[in-house]
């Protein structure tokens, strides 16, 4: 249950950005979360109101866009889809792959009432 820590970090960042933009309220927060980020989107959503209570983001809508898991194969050069516990190349099956996307834990976008 480290999602509350992650939410507190999120709210801190959101409030900083809201203040930089002289916002009166945060309307929407969009996150990008990959399956290998180590964070569970459903738990983030339930932790968010606790972390945001009493801030400019208290009534913001939290939108989580999950990201695809994709790997790049160093052996055959292909970029393919993968799953969290099988990160092998989808073409040649080699395990010398690197993640292209799927470990994101990003604050992507905010909608502010200014």
């Amino acid at each position: 249950m480290h999602e509350l820590s992650v939410c507190q970090a999120l709210v801190t960042q959101v409030i900083e950005i809201a203040q930089e933009n002289s916002a009166r309220e945060v309307l929407m927060i969009t996150l990008h979360i990959g399956p290998l980020s180590g964070v569970e989107p459903a738990l983030l959503v339930s932790a968010f109101p606790l972390a945001a209570a009493g801030t400019l983001a208290a009534s913001a809508q939290l939108v989580i866009e999950s990201q695809p898991l994709r790997v790049h194969c160093q052996t055959c050069g292909a970029d393919t889809e993968a799953t969290a516990n099988r990160l092998l190349c989808g073409i040649c099956g080699d395990y010398h792959t690197q993640l292209i996307s799927g470990d994101e834990l990003l604050l992507a976008n905010l909608e502010l009432m200014t």
Binding site: I17, L105, L106, A108, L110, E111, T114
Partner: peptide, 22 residues
């Protein structure tokens, strides 16, 4: 996301920051 249109009365800010930046 960097080119997200802005609604009336609201403004969109593209951030793309790691959540655990602090």
């Amino acid at each position: 996301l960097a080119y997200k249109p802005v609604k009336n009365g609201a403004s969109a800010v593209s951030v793309l920051k790691k959540l655990l930046a602090h």
